[in-house]
């Protein structure tokens, strides 16, 4: 009975492979090492954010405030350096803010028991507002001389591999290590799988939930620094964009169920690759942005529908509040 089942992860892999083969065959210039690197580089920030989201989703929550964590603390780094502070102290301040933000998120969700969707929605708005009102003078925080050298984080390359890809890979390894090899990783899975059981077993569920959101905020902040370094500015308006939806798609599409306790780094990589291949292929085809979105949406929908047909859910196995 088991072996006939194909998981969503495998479906996404099949779709990705098919797309990749299709693009390689029919698109001139797709299957070149330069383009593949460009493909990866274009989605590396998305991938890093996906890892942050994955930690939270595996732990049974969701973090809508990730984009605020991406935009505000790194923006502050640029702003502080612009105002004459040293780069290192600015980075320390930024990470301190990210950690504090994660703590607040975690507290709201674990202790005040506000549903994660709502808590992070509101806290994200709060952080974005804070940045907009008090931290930045203009929404696009520009690079300044004090940042010299820091742009290597986004623009350098090692052995021809652009830095963001290396950073994505490093984050993947770090997160995979955390989730698979450490006690806290095991706890995160346990909490996401069955929070009540984890509690009864004696796992400190609330601190673990707080930890998830702190990790997410810190990784989000890191992604923001990479983003800022690669475009030489921090467009904090990115908070208004629909980037968070792409992040959720990467995670969920990769096969990490929103119900928690399932999936891992592999799923994020898969989701990221699928999105990356699609976007890159369509950019090569010179499709307009709107058309790209349309195609992206339809392919995603097809993948999700395929999953439903292969792994049908019926009234017997349906979960309560299964959104």
């Amino acid at each position: 009975m088991k072996r006939f089942r194909i998981t969503q992860q495998e479906i996404v892999f099949v779709v990705f492979a098919a797309l990749f083969v299709f693009c390689s065959l029919f698109l001139k210039g797709f299957l070149t090492s330069a383009n593949i690197l460009a493909l990866l580089q274009n989605v590396s920030v998305l991938g890093i954010l996906g890892l942050a989201m994955a930690i939270v989703v595996i732990g049974g929550g969701i973090d809508i405030s990730l984009i605020a964590a991406l935009a505000v603390p790194p923006g502050l780094v640029l702003q502080m350096v612009q105002d004459g502070h040293s780069l290192s102290s600015s980075i320390v301040v930024a990470f301190a803010i990210a950690i504090a933000f994660g703590l607040v998120n975690g507290w709201l969700i674990a202790y005040a028991e506000v549903p994660s969707l709502f808590a992070t929605l509101a806290s994200g708005i709060f952080l974005a507002g804070l940045g907009q009102a008090f931290l930045f003078r203009v929404e696009v925080v520009q690079w300044s001389d004090g940042m010299a050298g820091f742009d290597r984080l986004g623009q350098a390359s090692v052995f021809g591999v652009p830095m963001p890809i290396i950073l994505l890979a490093a984050t993947c390894l770090a997160v995979a290590f955390l989730l698979r090899r450490t006690r806290w990783g095991a706890y995160i899975y346990a909490v996401g799988d069955n929070r009540a059981a984890a509690r009864v077993t004696g796992i400190p569920t609330r601190p673990i939930i707080v930890l998830q959101y702190v990790l997410a905020a810190v990784i989000g902040c890191f992604a923001g620094l990479v983003l800022a370094a690669s475009v030489n500015s921090m467009p904090t308006r990115i908070f208004n964009s629909t980037l968070i939806y792409d992040v959720i798609l990467v995670v969920v599409l990769g096969g990490i169920g929103l119900s928690g306790g399932r999936g891992g780094v592999v799923n994020v990589i898969l989701g990221t690759l699928l999105i990356g291949t699609m976007l890159n292929g369509m950019t090569i085809m010179n499709l307009s942005y709107a058309a790209q979105n349309l195609v992206k949406g339809v392919v995603l929908l097809a993948a999700v529908i395929a999953d439903t047909f292969i792994n049908p859910r019926n009234e017997e196995t349906a979960q309560q509040g299964d959104i």
Binding site: A190, D193, N194, A197, A198, T201, I203, G261
Partner: peptide, 19 residues
């Protein structure tokens, strides 16, 4: 509801108790 971790293996369930 509050007994075991359903997607984890037997070994992991027991090991979580130990941890």
């Amino acid at each position: 509801i509050e007994g075991f971790f359903e997607t984890a293996t037997i070994a992991r369930n027991i090991y979580l108790g130990l941890l």
